[in-house]
Structure formats: C-alpha cells, structure tokens
Nucleic acid binder design. Structure first.
Length: 653
DNA sequence: GAGACCGACGTTTTT
DNA sequence: CGTCGGTCTC
C-alpha cells in the first residue's frame, strides 16, 4: 500500500512572519482580511476604513505566500485605481506586486477578447466605440429604418442607446427593459427590436465593439467556451474585485465564471453604490454569498479618515437609508470642526464664499492639493471656475466632458482608427463628412464600396470638386501608415486636418492646443491599437498622467462626486446642496433614485477628513419645471444644529 | 444631395 | 442657452 503524506498547509510559518512584519500597519479586522484563506470572501468596507490599504496588503500576502503576481487579477473601477494600488503595493511591500494583472472590467475584457475573441468570430483588430460613436451608429440606422414619419414618437438615439445598454448590462430581454424603464414606448417595441438587431449586426460586420459588448462578449466567451475559461482560470488563480457595489449583473456573472474555484475576494460598501444609472446593482453584493457558497463575510468598520464631527453628519444622512449590511462606523479622531451649512443669496455669492474660504485656508497653511470642491453635476461648478480664475487659484477639474470626447479630437482619432481597422465605418463616416461637398448620402455610398473593395475604391469618387481633397486624403493615409511611430501618424493626420478644422471652428487656436496635447499623450505609445483602446477605455486618465510638467504647482480639485469616489481631502466643499439640484428634481418621483442620491451625498460627505462645508444658493428658479427652489437638500435639512451648523453670509461694504 | 436656417425642447453621473 | 431635428433652397 502506498503511503501518502498530507502536508500541513504552508500558511502557519508564512502567517507568523507576515504578522511580525506588518501587524502594526493593520488593525485586526484588516489583518484578517489581508490574510484570509483561499475561499470566497466578501469584505464590507465602510467609507474611509482603509479598504485600499487592506487590499494592498492582501496582494502582498498572496505574493508572500508564493502566488505568482501575474496570476492575481485585480479588477477596479478605474484603471488609475488599479495602477495606484499596484504602485503602492510595490513601494510599500514587495516589488513583485507591480506585476499583478489589473484593470477595469472593460479593459481586462478588451485584452482577453483581443487574444481569444476569435472563438466568437471577433477580429483581434476590433475598434471600441465610445458612447457617442455608438449613438452615431444608432442614429444612422434609425434613419435607414424610415422611422422619421411624422406624428410618431420614436425614442431618440440617446434613449435607444441607454435602453440597449440596460439590456446588456442587466441581462434583460428587450421586452423586460422597455417594460421596466420605458413603458411609454411599449407600442413601438417591434421597431425598437429590429433596430437593436440591426445595430448588433452592423457592429459585428465592421469589427466594432461598444462598451457593453466588451462585457457581453467576455461573458459569452467564458460561458460558451469551456477550454478558454479553463485557460483563464489557470492564468488568473486569484481574483480581487474592488467597488463591488457598483458592478452590474453581467459583471457579477463574469466574476462568478472567472472565480469558479472560489478564490475570489470582493470588496465594497452597499452604502456607496452610486452607479445604478449604468446598470449597477448593489444587490450583487448581497447575492455574493449565494453565488459563492461558503463565503466568509468580513467587515471593516473603523474609519481612519474623518473626524467624529464629519462622521456624525455622514451617519445621520445614511441612517435614513435601508442598508442591507448593517455596520457601525466609528473613529478615534474625536471632535473636529462642525460641518457648516452655508446659505448664500445667489450662485455668485456661493462662488465668492468658496473662493475666499479657500484663500483663507491656504493662508492657514493648508495646501491647495488638500482641498476639493465637489458637486452633483459637472456644470454646477461653471460659475466657481470663473471666480477661481479671477483670483488666480489654480484648479484641476475632474468629471464631465473629456478631451477625447471633443469633436476635433474625435475627428483626428477617426483617421487613426481606420488605419487600425479599415472596416470601421463609424470613423470613415466621420472623416468623409469633413470634406466639403460630401454629405451623409455620398459618404454611405463610398463606405459601402470601400468595405467591398478596399480603400482605393475611394478614387472612383474623385471627380469634380472632390477630386483634389480625396486625392489628398488617400495620400495622407498612405503617409501616415508609413510613419514609424504613433506620434508620427498623428502628425501626418494633423497636417491634413488642421486646415479643415480652421474652416470649421472659430475657436481653432484652442482646439489646436488640445491636439498638441494629444500628440504629447501619444508619445508614450508604440502601438496604435493600444493607444486607441486606452483612450476609448479610460478617456481621462491619460490626460491626468501627462501633467508632470506643472505637477509642482499645487492645485485645487473640482470634481463631480462620481469622479471623487475613493478619494479624500482635508477640506471638502459641497456645492449646490439645494433641494432640486441635489437631490436632482428628476429623482423626486422615484424612491430608488432618491435613495441613490442619498448615497451620493454620503459619498461626498465621507471624502472629508477635517473640514466640511455644504453650501446652497437660495431662491433658484428651475426653468424646466417652473419650480422655485428655496430649501437645502432634504438629506441635510432635518439634521440638528449640533451636527450641522448653519452659517449666514454677510458682505462687507 | 448638401448645407443653411428655424423652431422646439430640456437631467445628470461614466466604462 | 445650446443642441437637435425638420424643412427649405441652391
């Protein structure tokens, strides 16, 4: 009989040495999470509870136990978050952590699909469509269907795109999605369905992939191709998912398939779920234990970020919401300045207050980089931006419009995209329409012909006034292809495009600067598809990264609350805490949406470490609804003065 | 078929 | 106030 020796799990010695080295860096709850055994784990991490820190040590622990860094997959909400985490883990603990695989669901999906997508009939040179590209396609098909009959209300491209997105992200049928969100279009559902089918086919035929397709296709790959799933399971032995409360149904399924053997750790906070508009469902976090039987649930409840005074307000605001995982946040930073509720007469007074206060704080020695101004919607800061500029206060704005989404940048990108994917009809259409005399009809004809016969077919259209521009376009494309760098290609495109742009826009000097910025970004890339993918998947990280030139200058941050997720500052201002602005008037009638706005307020408040100012202008007329808004946000209105102190402004002179 | 012009209309957050 | 869609003219 053969004797087989069972070995002790190798963990005890590792645990002892790890504890010796790092115990003082973590509290006991965090330490338990970092060193949790291999099975499925769910970590409910309250705001400011050192979640990132814990994840970093988790990575270190796995590496410490001999797990190959490459076989750990870290899924985060933005790629910046992943890079930041890997960098910190490498600096703090173990250089090998840098080799951990990390990214967003979308970027990881794109990488996997480029490699294995063939199994689904997907070309590896597919182009990623951003939201507005997707809408362009829908618009085109909408026209082709002959839907523009008078009198009939048919959903607009934005609505359709949103609807299709919900179908994909929430794994609904079209009927279910219409029923749930767009009941008033039920009678048009067959037309919508045929448009949806055409849209899918249009993309497939031209190697185009929208954001949702990335997830849907990855899901299909994992669920339908066992061998690929095995290969990926072999490659990624440990799965760490951050911000789990903001995953949607299909992402949940992807995690389930990728983490089949149970080596999955999901981290999140149901109280901070703020992405339901794009299909996120914090029920995912509640269902996790059912997805993964034997799940161990951990909680991080000690807040290290904020003073008790800030936390009191946060707790009061969130207490009204029905949290599913009860937890009690506490801090050892007793006391602190009471959060202020500042009433201003009008928007300009609010702006002046914020600017003046920031100047005072800087006098007191708080650097601008430790101050942030947060708001519900990007446009809420317009007036303040002017005020800050007037007072020479440097700031960086996050959220809202992206450089990559501006028309001129998209114009240039479209020329590059057809080099990477010649069947990218969306880009062809965009760049052909730039040529005077070519409109939608001609453009479609040209594209149809080129899809059959290749780019040179364009010569067949080079007649009359169009002969010369078409000739120049073709020459430029050939030159760009011959260029030896991504930057070189963009330069060729710009030589061609700038004259067109100067004709099209009055403000071309500013736009030229943007394009020069694009050149700068491109210098870091050697591979065109990679450049295009990155810009599509992370439209603003690339901008921030490029800023080292003026990195020495201290800057204030203006940010949407959504973009401030996971970050912290010593002093936080929240603008427009006015009922109707925040929560938005459009959420009033839907309980679930109001609840999400409440969580959004909670996220905003918990960004502050020491000082918090909420302000609202009184007497605001809301045009669309003809309502006069006069009250502070309903989330803070009932808060007692011991917790939120009212301030009234008065002007000198 | 392209592009100028006019009237209607209206949420916002992001991969 | 700015964008969108539809109509009209060249």
């Amino acid at each position: 009989m053969k004797k087989y020796i069972l070995r002790e799990p190798p963990k005890q010695a590792a645990l002892d040495s790890f504890r010796a080295a790092y115990q003082s860096s973590l509290n006991e709850q965090q330490f338990q999470v970092a060193t949790a055994p291999d099975g499925p784990a769910l970590v409910i991490a309250g705001a400011g509870s050192g979640k990132t820190r814990t994840l970093i040590y988790r990575l270190a622990w796995l590496v410490h136990c001999g797990v190959k860094p490459e076989s750990i997959l870290l899924l985060t909400f933005t790629r910046r978050a992943a890079q930041e985490m890997l960098k910190r883990a490498a600096e703090l603990l173990d250089e090998r952590c840098r080799r951990v695989s990390g990214g967003t669901f979308h970027s990881v999906a794109a990488a996997i699909l480029r490699r294995y997508g063939k199994a689904l009939g997907l070309s590896s040179s597919f182009t990623i469509l951003d939201r507005s590209d997707a809408e362009d396609v829908i618009q085109l098909l909408r026209g082709e269907l002959g839907l523009s009959e008078k009198g009939k209300r048919f959903p607009k491209k934005g609505t359709l795109s949103d609807l299709f997105s919900k179908v994909q992200n929430k794994l609904l049928t079209l009927d279910e999605a219409v029923e749930a969100e767009y009941y008033h279009f039920t009678d048009q559902i067959e037309l919508i369905r045929s448009l949806f089918i055409r849209y899918q086919k249009y993309k497939t035929d031209r190697h185009l992939v929208d954001y949702d397709d990335l997830l849907v296709d990855l899901y299909a790959l994992l669920s339908e191709h066992a061998s690929i799933r095995e290969a990926l399971a072999e490659q990624y032995k440990h799965l760490l998912v951050d911000e789990y409360q903001d995953t949607n149904k299909i992402q949940g399924e992807i995690v389930r398939l990728l983490g089949r053997d149970g080596r999955v750790m999901a981290v999140g906070d149901d109280a901070q779920s703020i992405y339901s508009f794009r299909g996120a469902d914090f029920q995912n976090i509640l269902r996790f234990p059912q997805f993964f039987p034997g799940t161990q649930v951990y909680k991080l409840e000690e807040n290290y970020r904020s003073t008790q005074a800030v936390l009191d307000l946060a707790n009061t605001v969130i207490a009204e919401s029905k949290q599913q995982y009860p937890k009690r946040l506490f801090t050892r930073k007793q006391g602190g300045m009471k959060p202020a509720l500042v009433r201003a007469q009008e928007e300009s007074e609010q702006s002046r207050f914020v600017a003046q206060k920031i100047l005072e704080l800087r006098e007191e020695g708080i650097p601008l980089s430790e101050i942030a101004v947060l708001f519900r919607s990007s446009f809420h800061s317009f007036d303040l931006e002017i005020e800050l500029a007037r007072r020479n206060l440097p700031f960086e704005k996050r959220g809202g419009f992206k450089l990559v989404e501006t028309a001129h940048v998209k114009d240039v990108m479209s020329h590059l995209r057809i080099l990477a994917n010649p069947s990218d009809a969306v880009s062809w259409n965009r760049l052909l329409l730039l040529i005077p005399g070519i409109g939608p009809r001609t453009s479609q004809k040209m594209i149809a012909k080129m899809l059959q016969e290749g780019r040179e077919a364009l010569r067949g259209f080079a007649r009359g006034a169009q002969a010369e521009p078409i000739q120049r376009l073709l020459e430029m494309l050939t030159q760009a292809e011959g260029a030896d760098s991504v930057t070189g290609r963009i330069e060729r495109v710009m030589e061609y495009y700038l004259p067109l742009m100067k004709n099209k826009y009055d403000d071309h000097p500013k736009r030229t600067k943007d394009l020069e910025h694009l050149l700068l970004i491109s210098e870091r890339y050697r591979n065109l598809s990679r450049f295009l993918s990155d810009l599509a998947l992370e439209p603003d990280a690339s901008i921030v990264d490029v800023a080292p030139a003026d990195a020495d200058q201290e800057k204030l941050v203006l940010s949407t609350i959504h973009s401030a997720k996971g970050l912290e500052w010593r002093v936080v201002f929240i603008l427009w805490a006015l009922d109707g602005y925040f929560p938005s008037i459009y959420s009033f009638t839907h309980e679930a949406e109001l609840e999400e706005e409440r969580r959004l307020m909670y996220v905003a408040i918990t960004r502050a470490k020491e000082q918090l100012y909420l302000s609202y202008p009184i007497r605001v007329f809301h045009r669309a609804s003809h309502a006069v808004l006069t009250k502070p946000s309903r989330f803070i209105e009932p808060v007692p003065e011991e917790i939120l102190e009212p301030w009234v402004l008065s002007e000198e002179g």
